[in-house]
Nucleic acid binder design. Structure first.
Length: 489
RNA sequence: GGCCCCAUCGUCUAGCGGCCUAGGACACCGGCUUUUCACGCCGGCAACACGGGUUCGAAUCCCGUUGGGGUCACCA
């Protein structure tokens, strides 16, 4: 019996910034497959575009992956038997492969300048023809290369694309055949001797013994080139699985301009990684049976290439928000607290993060604000507690409505002396006092809580009034009520 | 434009010839709950792109049309 090879798959991002949700999904699916099959998940950095590389981006990507709960067995940071895992540190490998192809007559040197190439393309377009690089009848030799260099011309290596149909046996899309002559001779080694994506990718997948390539569908049309390269180099062709794309709500390709689609951005905006990862998993994959809420462990159990769809998905933030709300409500206090600490550590705009309240207060905040959708909701609802009394901004509309029109000032005036007499500043005691006050006055609690809320927060939104006053503390509460009263003119 | 891929509620999707008067979730609409906001609860609206076939029978298979997407770089 032929034993199936242990699965080896990888996630190979370019270090251009934080991890994007599309990349996150690719990484997640590869990870899921590896974990399910007991295989190996590799992370390597494809940094062959030296112009676009962003220093430190590899670190950010690693941090984002780990925040999502994804870990890798081989690759950057953790090492492994097939390193280094940065392509710019493996240039000799690609040069050797290019040399082999040239010697075998499967690749050749070319010396066109960008301007010449552009002119050829322009001519083809003017003639309404598809541009294909014109392969020379005789490949240039060493002396031609030297001559070109002497003339200051760029020297690249192009792969002589074989003239034959190539079928990609894709496990998501099915067999996809690209006809002979559709693909032209593409560059595999750039003028600066750095390989293009195609060569580096193929060489590394072979060297790292990757036997399943799962990536975005934008690469499907490139795969025949990769297969041709593998054949010319004598490499085995891995299994392929191309994922449908993630689009924005309008159906356009998701780009950073559409807003924050970086994993880190969701982290900084107070989302839980388990909610994000669950939501992303459902973009292009479904466990079936009307199941939706899944832990990573459950996803591993249920995941399979057979259940990956073929239609592009749109990234619907509303649904993500709903997932986050549910996850936050269902999380254990410990888990929620840990996630909240993480949020406070990265949320620079949060007034609560800046005020650094003690742990008991943070815990209390989580409790009194329960029902929040994302952590910034806590800032919006309870942030006023942490600003200086003098800096508290009163919302003119709230003041006009609640304090003036609805008679809030009068309520505050009668309430202030009662509150000043309260010794035991607790939720129970304060709520009892307010209830008693309402009963003797024959008014609803809203009539009393709202003026207090405005006086103490500047607006109409806060946690329950008793909890709000306790969190604020006796001194601040009384001071703010007195300040509010001075607003009356 | 050439080539390739795709097509179920507004969105993510279930459905792999009869179980579908098409199921779930989000959004939306209505109601309830309520000291504010949010949460929550109940109910409702809502889709097989179109046209041909195949078949006793089609959302499910085939062809075409339309629509959408991807790709045609010394970017990945």
């Amino acid at each position: 019996m032929n034993q199936p090879r242990p699965l080896r798959c990888r996630f190979a991002p370019s270090p251009t910034g934080h991890l994007h949700v599309g990349g996150a999904r690719t990484a997640l699916f590869n990870w899921l497959l590896a974990r399910k099959a007991g295989g190996t998940f590799i992370v390597r950095i494809e940094d062959t575009d030296t112009e676009r590389n962003v220093p430190g981006a590899d670190r950010k990507i690693m941090e984002d992956l780990r925040w999502l709960g994804l870990t890798w067995d081989e690759g950057i940071d953790v090492g492994g038997p097939h390193g280094p895992y940065y392509q710019t540190r493996r240039l000799d490998l690609y040069a050797a492969a290019a040399r082999r192809l040239i010697e075998a007559g499967r690749a050749y040197y070319a010396f066109d300048t960008q301007e010449e190439l552009a002119a050829m393309r322009a001519r083809a377009e003017a003639a309404k023809q598809t541009f294909r690089y014109p392969r020379p009848a005789v490949f240039p030799d060493r002396r031609d290369v030297e001559r070109a260099r002497a003339q200051g011309r760029p020297v690249v290596v192009r792969f002589a694309m074989p003239d034959e149909d190539i079928t990609v046996p894709d496990e998501v899309m099915g067999d996809v055949t690209v006809g002979a002559g559709e693909l032209d001779d593409f560059v595999i080694l750039k003028a600066d001797s750095i390989p293009t994506y195609h060569l580096a990718n193929v060489v590394d997948d072979a060297a790292m013994e990757v036997n399943l390539v799962m990536r975005g569908q934008e690469f499907l049309a490139q795969t025949p080139r990769h297969i041709a390269l593998q054949r010319a180099l004598g490499y085995p062709t891995p299994r392929y699985a191309h994922l449908p794309l993630i689009m924005d709500l309008k159906g356009r390709k998701l780009s950073k301009r559409d807003g924050d689609v970086e994993v880190f951005s969701f982290r900084a905006h107070g989302y839980l990684p388990e909610a994000l990862v669950n939501f992303i998993a459902l973009l292009g994959w479904s466990p079936g049976a009307d199941r939706e809420k899944l832990t990573l462990a459950e996803m591993i159990e249920l995941f399979g290439i057979e259940r990956i769809g073929r239609t592009n998905a749109r990234f619907d933030r509303e649904k993500l928000l709903a997932f986050n709300t549910d996850y936050a409500a269902a999380a254990t206090p410990e888990r929620l607290m840990a996630a909240y600490e993480d949020y406070l550590s990265v949320a620079e705009a949060s007034p609560i993060a800046r005020a650094r309240p003690d742990e008991a207060t943070r815990r209390e905040l989580l409790r009194v604000c329960r029902g929040f959708r994302t952590f910034p909701d806590i800032d919006a609802k309870a942030g006023f507690i942490f600003v200086d009394d003098a800096a508290l901004a009163y919302d003119p509309a709230a003041v006009a409505k609640v304090l003036v029109k609805d008679g809030g000032y009068a309520i505050l005036e009668s309430l202030l002396p009662l509150l000043e007499k309260v010794e035991e500043w607790t939720t129970g005691r304060l709520e009892a006092l307010l209830k008693g006050f309402c009963e003797t006055r024959q008014v609803g609690l809203g009539k009393v809580a709202q003026p207090l809320r405005v006086a103490v927060s500047g607006g109409t939104i806060s946690p329950a009034i008793g909890e709000t006053l306790v969190l604020l503390g006796r001194e601040k509460t009384l001071r703010r009520i007195r300040n509010a009263l001075t607003l009356r003119s």
